[in-house]
Design a protein around this nucleic acid. Structure first.
Length: 322
DNA sequence: AACGGGTGCAACCGCGAATCC
DNA sequence: GGGATTCGCGGTTGCACCCGT
């Protein structure tokens, strides 16, 4: 049987939209609105399927859309919300006036994901890779740890080597001084060596301290001065629980595990609250979820450890969904 | 100038949810 | 209540453009 196609495949144009098609669609919608997408292409004289028209309108033609570069503030919001909501692009986009879920998704996939990876932060969990490694060592038995960590490190190493070789990082330009006297730039290697017993980041562990490339010790600064996630004064002395633990001493094993659990619990609660509000579908509809998030944040419930990157400041919730 | 790889963005696909009848 | 239809979302693909060789 199979699925019924959303439209007749014959006589339906695909691919790039022409200015004429854009004009037809825009003028039709300006007159008649977007009531029934299936009828719109017919009535507007377009050889497109309704779905294609809807996409074109919502992602490109809508007059309230913002085109062009994402600002630092927008970046910041995306990262923060992604850490809580995951790939819920429509929810994230709702916080960015004039941006579509497609915009946000594309921006995440092409830029932010790489940025976070380059910082040594796992873009999926928003935790430092070192943190994840520590978690692995606390939850698995030694033989499992060894194999899993080796595999994970292989990926991480590949990623970093890729970044290093592609971007031609000038090591002389990198400030290797550690802002934290307790922080050892070989911390990650040591941890790995101690816990997994055998991993080494060949080529990355030399005395040049290349590990600083993903050192979040100084307020999560990105390598590029043009972009940052909260590397201003608010960030002084504030890092995520994970980073705080990572930054610190050799106690990474226990402190990371504890803070990670607390952080995970907080995220779970917050996310659950957002979802519950959405699912309940009470008067406010989708917006209630974000309102819940705001309320929640106002109570500092998400503020596990005065964390900047992961925290949602109340003012960050700039656009309530409707 | 030609080529190849990388990147970014627009568009498509398929699924599940919501709505209609 | 249940099938049909429509809509919205997230993942993926295709392609134009850019840049280095």
């Amino acid at each position: 049987m199979g699925r019924i196609p959303c439209c007749e495949r014959e006589n339906v144009k695909r691919g790039q939209w022409t200015p004429e098609e854009d004009n037809k669609l825009a003028s039709y919608i300006a007159q008649h609105g977007t009531r029934n997408w299936r009828l719109i292409p017919k009535n507007a004289g377009l050889q497109r399927c309704g779905k294609s028209c809807r996409l074109r309108w919502t992602n490109y033609l809508r007059p309230d859309l913002k085109h062009g570069q994402f600002s630092d503030a927008e970046e910041h919001i995306i990262v923060k919300f992604h850490s809580v909501l995951g790939n819920r692009w429509s929810l994230i986009a709702a916080q960015l006036p004039g941006r579509t879920d497609n915009d946000v998704k594309n921006y995440w996939n092409t830029k932010l994901k790489k940025k976070l990876s380059g910082m040594g932060i796992d873009p999926v969990t928003h935790k430092p890779f070192s943190h994840l490694m520590a978690e692995i060592t606390t939850t698995l038995n030694p033989p499992q740890v060894s194999h899993l960590a080796e595999a994970a490190l292989g990926c991480f190493k590949d990623e970093m080597l890729h970044l290093l070789t592609k971007k031609r990082v000038d090591l002389n330009q990198i400030n290797f001084s550690s802002p934290n006297p307790n922080h050892n730039s070989n911390n990650f290697n040591q941890t790995v060596d101690n816990e997994a017993g055998k991993m080494k980041l060949d080529g990355l562990e030399n005395g040049n301290g290349i590990m600083k490339l993903w050192d979040m010790g100084n307020g999560f600064s990105y390598g590029s001065s043009s972009s940052s996630f909260g590397n201003d004064e608010r960030n002084e002395g504030s890092a995520s629980p994970a980073v705080a633990a990572w930054r610190g001493h050799g106690g990474i094993r226990t402190s990371v595990a504890e803070t990670a659990a607390a952080e995970e619990e907080e995220r779970r609660k917050l996310k659950g609250e957002v979802m519950d509000q959405e699912e309940n579908g009470s008067e406010g509809g989708k917006g209630d979820g974000m309102m819940a998030m705001r309320r929640h944040h106002d109570q500092h419930a998400f503020n596990v450890d005065d964390n900047d990157l992961w925290d949602l400041q109340a003012d960050d919730l700039i656009n309530h969904m409707v």
